[in-house]
Design a binder for these strands. Structure first.
Lengths: 215, 215
DNA sequence: ATCCTAACGCAACTGTTGTCGCATTTATGG
DNA sequence: CCATAAATGCGACAACAGTTGCGTTAGGAT
């Protein structure tokens, strides 16, 4: 993300890039916090269409040029905000059954996709314009999938999954994809029954061994 | 998409807007064809990021202003191109089994999402910026879902579906959503096995009655 | 052939987006 | 405290997006 630093002197010629000393303290951190806050506020106030670099700069009091230099575009802004917020202590629901866990998970997905301000939808939209936003979103989902491992472990312990190892991610995608498809792609109104139906479908298929890994 | 037909006479004076007589012939049709061709060519040449109104206008030889007036923005252009192309005689695959049909369908979906030029991806991206593109995409999917009815009819005739009526659309979404999710949202590389797996999962759930309509 | 006007072409204009060079501020190491 | 340079502020700029007013062309009806 950063341009190659000006090689001053004493360059141990192995890495010709002396990696300039960052200075994350004081002002930089303050600016970053100001901009993060402005992104969220701007999203609330004007929605995704109103989320431009200029608007964020004005609202934060930070200069346009600074925002462009550090975050490049709206996708970079959202990516950074998302990364900063990824350290919440999220844990998957625990309802006592695989189907129940998946249904609760789907409820959270649906809530996230329909919430206001539409942060999730904004990020998905941005991911089509900015590689950085796409990467951040991928990281986010990856983290969530990883944290969902206990769901499958508990299910296996309860005997809800076949003996062979299950492809956790395939199961999670099968369970949640219909919700994403309806809300994010078709943009159809939320169907209150869909989270449960999709969860039931995926749980059924999982029990039948549809996601067992080869070997 | 076209305004109400030109009520020539006998105007019950209720609407004070006489709805000017369209003139879709000759020049207008020629301009439309030129622009459509330019959109496709520009998409091939420069990708979605290079698909701007100006580029299309220049390439088509039609004036900027005309394109802005008739199509408003990139989303409008793509929407119109999609609508014009929706009259192909597409029919769902017929492989002899529900799972086979769904798998073949998923192969088509995967091929569409990974094809080059990325028309489908461009349209999905545009649907996040332009209401018209979103609407066109919805129409397109709606049309496709409708044309898939024979798949379920044949499956029911073969006894692959329970006696009660099946929610066709829910089944189709469950079958195809994982493919869309991986390729369009996660942007993960295409998994050659996914179309078949997702089809098997959905077919299994359908046979078990997961998509039967209430009543 | 003639008229009417929708559709188009044209040029000028405004506002937004993103970049660049340079001055200023301020972490940070010494 | 001092020196260095990373980070920011600032203004000007080019490129692009989108609009508007007005003149011109040509489709379609009489």
């Amino acid at each position: 993300m950063e341009p190659p630093p000006p090689s001053t002197d004493i360059p141990p010629p192995s890495p010709p890039e002396p990696a300039p000393r960052r200075r994350p303290g004081g002002r930089s951190a303050r600016v970053r916090a100001l901009v993060h806050r402005a992104v969220r506020e701007q999203l609330v106030a004007e929605g995704y269409d109103g989320l431009t670099v200029d608007a964020v700069a004005t609202r934060s009091g930070v200069h346009r040029t600074t925002v462009y230099r550090r975050w490049r575009d709206v996708g970079g802004l959202l990516a950074d905000v998302l990364d900063a917020a990824a350290d919440d202590g999220w844990a998957p629901p625990d309802t006592g059954s695989l189907e129940g866990d998946l249904a609760a998970l789907n409820e959270e997905v649906a809530a996230g996709l329909t919430e206001d301000p539409p942060i999730a939808m904004a990020l998905i939209a941005a991911s089509f314009r900015s590689p950085e936003a796409a990467e951040a979103l991928r990281r986010f989902w990856d983290d969530r999938y990883r944290r969902c491992a206990p769901v499958m472990e508990r299910a296996a312990a309860r005997g809800e999954l076949p003996g062979a190892a299950t492809d956790d991610r395939a199961l999670l995608i099968a369970a949640t994809a219909p919700v994403y498809h309806r809300l994010a792609l078709l943009r159809a109104p939320a169907d209150p029954a869909l989270p449960a139906t999709a969860a039931r479908t995926a749980a059924l298929a999982a029990t039948a061994g549809a996601f067992t890994l080869p070997g």
